[in-house]
Design a protein around this nucleic acid. Structure first.
Lengths: 211, 211
DNA sequence: TTGCAAATGTGAGGATTACTCATATTTTGT
DNA sequence: ACAAAATATGAGTAATCCTCACATTTGCAA
């Protein structure tokens, strides 16, 4: 990102839009940013272009977003909120090993499909490693998701050590994100194979062993 | 990275230094860059600062490196060459499951230790997701390393499908890199637990199952 | 040694781009 | 109707990557 030091703290806050008009304009800004990211990637996204496409001035952009990363962050946050709801829903009622297998497999497919279909999401979470703020958001999000999984595991294996289960859940979850990112950066056929292999590997770890 | 579009092709090549003098200067440039990355991260590394610290002019920098990323790339390449030799050596003589377990576990420890100790390596491979060129280098490197692992697996499981083994090896390897990156971005204690959990998970996948 | 071409060295300046700020306009509450 | 708060504007500032025209050094053949 141009002109921003890597070790900066989190961007200084801006007032949230309180009027109807400005709320709509902020939506337009985010929509414009999203479109530009889809077309060229967030790195190539130019603030001037976002402003122009949203039909607002540069100054207005900075009225609500302290810097460029904040725009990406705002988009990322929407995805995380949405996906957390989905994950929590999918895992809520799991009570047996078979149910976990089904739900987990389905979640992985959904996640993989999302990454294949959404260039914006792909781009945002690609930059995740380089951007401290985004990395923190992703880790927190991942922890929260892993917690749902961990809760299921505690139910399935009441005797196991809770901390160990949490570690497993967190690791498996992060491995899943890494696997999907890997899968979309190779050709489709190999990607499918990798995701399938991940599923097997993860389920072997999650499900209680049998005789 | 400042002023570089994300979807750019690989940087245009520069002549390699052919004289003794220039070769030494290039070394100084790389050393300066390495030190600056260790101190502030590659994103905050300024070309002017690299030149100054290496005792050369800005122009000389660009004589041998087409752009900023090329410097990071050059440093990254050294690490990959070094580590490939190490990995190939460690896996060369593995013939049984126990040997694989030992060698693999040791490799993971070495890799984890390196990331804990080397801020430059950490920084370079953090940015890996965002930079197309680096991402390609890492994928190629990972494939090469996975190939060593895959060769061992073929020896241990002569009856298994070769393609499936390759997929497994590649996935396990990438998961390892992801696990280590995760481990260093949480506190040390949790990091250790995560690495240990990864080892168990990976070995369970790699080693032939027993009765 | 001398001369010349190729390699190397230099740093002021061009070009891009994130971001600021003084000022103007609109909305809200009374 | 009025003032204060919120919002809008865009020319200008600052930071930084990278180029290029020119200077210097090195390798080498005559």
């Amino acid at each position: 990102m141009e002109g921003t030091a890597a070790n900066e703290q989190i961007a200084s806050p801006r007032k949230a839009p309180s009027q109807q008009r400005s709320r709509e304009r902020v939506e337009r800004m985010l929509a414009a940013a999203s479109a530009l990211i889809a077309e060229q990637g967030s790195d190539a996204m130019r603030m001037g272009e976002v402003a122009e496409r949203a039909g607002v001035s540069i100054g207005s952009l900075y009225q609500f977003f302290p810097d460029k990363r904040a725009i990406v962050w705002a988009l990322a946050e929407r995805y995380t909120v949405e996906s957390q709801a989905c994950i929590s829903e999918a895992l809520k009622d799991v009570t047996d090993a078979e149910g976990l297998g089904r739900a987990f497999s389905e979640l992985v497919d959904i996640y993989y499909g999302l990454f294949l279909a959404e260039p914006v999401m792909r781009d945002i979470w690609s930059g995740t490693q380089a951007d401290k703020t985004l990395r923190q958001l992703e880790l927190a999000d991942s922890r929260a998701n892993a917690e749902f999984l961990s809760a299921v595991l505690r139910r399935l294996k009441p005797d196991a050590d809770a901390e160990a289960l949490e570690t497993t859940a967190f690791l498996v979850w992060q491995m899943g994100e890494a696997a999907v990112r890997l899968a979309i950066s190779v050709d489709r056929q190999e990607g499918d194979r990798l995701v399938a292999a991940y599923k097997r590997m993860a389920l072997r770890e999650l499900l209680p062993e049998e005789g």
